[in-house]
Every structure is written in structure tokens, then in C-alpha cells.
């Protein structure tokens, strides 16, 4: 009683305030508005002030961070866009909020479906940013974006994203998720390598069989 509690409490906050100044003094100008400073404020040894002054400095998001999804397209040598989506529909089937709509393209001549999406919509007013679509996409075509600055004045106009707004280049993807990108590219390269090797082996086998088989057989068939 007799008010020592209040004094104690004030001492605690005062110490916190002092911590800030001591730290400022120790680290100098590097403490604010620098990458190093922000990293320090994210680390386990941070003391004193903790605030990240958005928008002047932004808390970096980790690689796995997910906000709304986007579609990846590869850039051709002449700048043409080749989107990776094959309209297989797995993302729309796995989406818990059912906020993905895909229209599969058809071949105008035969009417048969072709592996390409004609239209692709995501309603970000329903999206729960769970990342299941990106996790189960077998073509690395849909990924979760890092851009969280999406506030708008009119959701009816802005918040159903169509293909135009969803498509982003693979280089952007590589930039926001470098490790994932490298891993996927490596896996792709290996798959291709294996394919090539398998094809080579098959060709070799065929050649060997041809050699071994008597030429008469060919005449028969």
C-alpha cells in the first residue's frame, strides 16, 4: 500500500524510456530508417523502442508470407506472355472459400477443351489467404502475393480480380520468393533432365533392338 505500487509502475515505464535513449546512443543513426535498424528491431535482443514507422520504413515480410493469390506468367524472348495456368481446376477445387472461378478454353475448331484458362477470377472479398491454391498447384502457376497495400474505395469495382489483374511475371515471383523460385526451377530442370535422359535411353534401346532384330521382320510387318 501507501502508493509504492504506483511509484514502482512509473519506474518500470521510465526504465523502458531510458532503454530507448541508451540504445539510440549506442547505435547512432543506424537505428532508424535503415534495413539494419529494422532487422535489429525484429530480433530477439531488441530493447527500448520497438516501433516500425510505416510507411516511412516497412517491416519486411518473410518469404513465406501470403496475402492474396496471383498468377505467374513466363516471359518469352520477345516479351510475349505465356501464362503457366493450364485450367486444371485444382486451385478452384481446393479453395475453402470457393473464391476462384476458372473458365477453361476450348479449341474453336473441335470444341474440345485445351489446357489454357480463358478467364480466371478471384474474389478477394471472400479469399481467406490460406495459400492452399498455391500449395497444391502442380504447375507453379498460382502463388501468394506479398503486396498487402490493396485498400480501395469501391469494392464492387475493384475486388473481383480478373486475369488481367492477376497476371504477374515470373521475374516478380523470383524477386519476392527467391528460395522457392530457385527450388522450383531446380526441380523443373531435374525433371527435364530426367525426361531427356529417359528419352535418350529409350532411343538407345530402340536402336539396339533394331540392330539386334533381323531385318526380315520389318518386311513382314
Amino acid at each position: 500500500m501507501d502508493g509504492t505500487g504506483i511509484l514502482k509502475g512509473l519506474a518500470v515505464t521510465f526504465k523502458r524510456m531510458l532503454d530507448t535513449y541508451i540504445d539510440d546512443f549506442k547505435r547512432g543513426k543506424k537505428r532508424y530508417y535503415t534495413e539494419e535498424g529494422i532487422r535489429y528491431r525484429q530480433s530477439a535482443e531488441v530493447k527500448g523502442i520497438f516501433t516500425v514507422q510505416y510507411p516511412d520504413e516497412k517491416l519486411p515480410v518473410p518469404e513465406e508470407f501470403r496475402f492474396v493469390p496471383f498468377l505467374v506468367y513466363d516471359e518469352g524472348p520477345n516479351g510475349e506472355r505465356k501464362d503457366r495456368c493450364t485450367a486444371c481446376g485444382i486451385c478452384s477445387k481446393v479453395c475453402p472459400a470457393q473464391c476462384i472461378w476458372i473458365k477453361r478454353a476450348t479449341n474453336p475448331k473441335t470444341g474440345r477443351p485445351i489446357p489454357h484458362s480463358e478467364e480466371f477470377y478471384i474474389d478477394i472479398d471472400m479469399c481467406m489467404n490460406c495459400g492452399l491454391c498455391a500449395e497444391y498447384c502442380p504447375f507453379d502457376s498460382i502463388k501468394m502475393d506479398h503486396d498487402y497495400e490493396l485498400a480501395t474505395y469501391d469494392r464492387h469495382r475493384d475486388n473481383i480480380l480478373n486475369k488481367e489483374r492477376l497476371l504477374k511475371p515470373a521475374s516478380y515471383y523470383a524477386q519476392i520468393r527467391p528460395l522457392n523460385y530457385a527450388r522450383e526451377e531446380e526441380a523443373k530442370r531435374q525433371a527435364e533432365e530426367a525426361k531427356r535422359k529417359a528419352a535418350e535411353a529409350r532411343a538407345k534401346r530402340m536402336a539396339a533392338r533394331k540392330k539386334a532384330a533381323p531385318p526380315k521382320k520389318e518386311d513382314k510387318s
Binding site: 510505416y54 510507411p55 516497412k58 517491416l59 515480410v61 496475402f67 492474396v68 478477394i124 472479398d125 479469399c127 481467406m128 489467404n129 498487402y148 497495400e149 490493396l150 485498400a151 480501395t152 474505395y153 469501391d154 469494392r155 475493384d158 475486388n159
Partner: peptide, 17 residues
Amino acid sequence: VDVYIPGCPPTPQALIY
């Protein structure tokens, strides 16, 4: 409504934006 902020949930920085 004046401003819509998408996200589930929007991160604090998205809210400040």
C-alpha cells in the same frame, strides 16, 4: 463504407495503409 481493406486478416501495415 468509405474504405475497404482486403485480407484475412489484413496485417497491421495493411490496416495503416
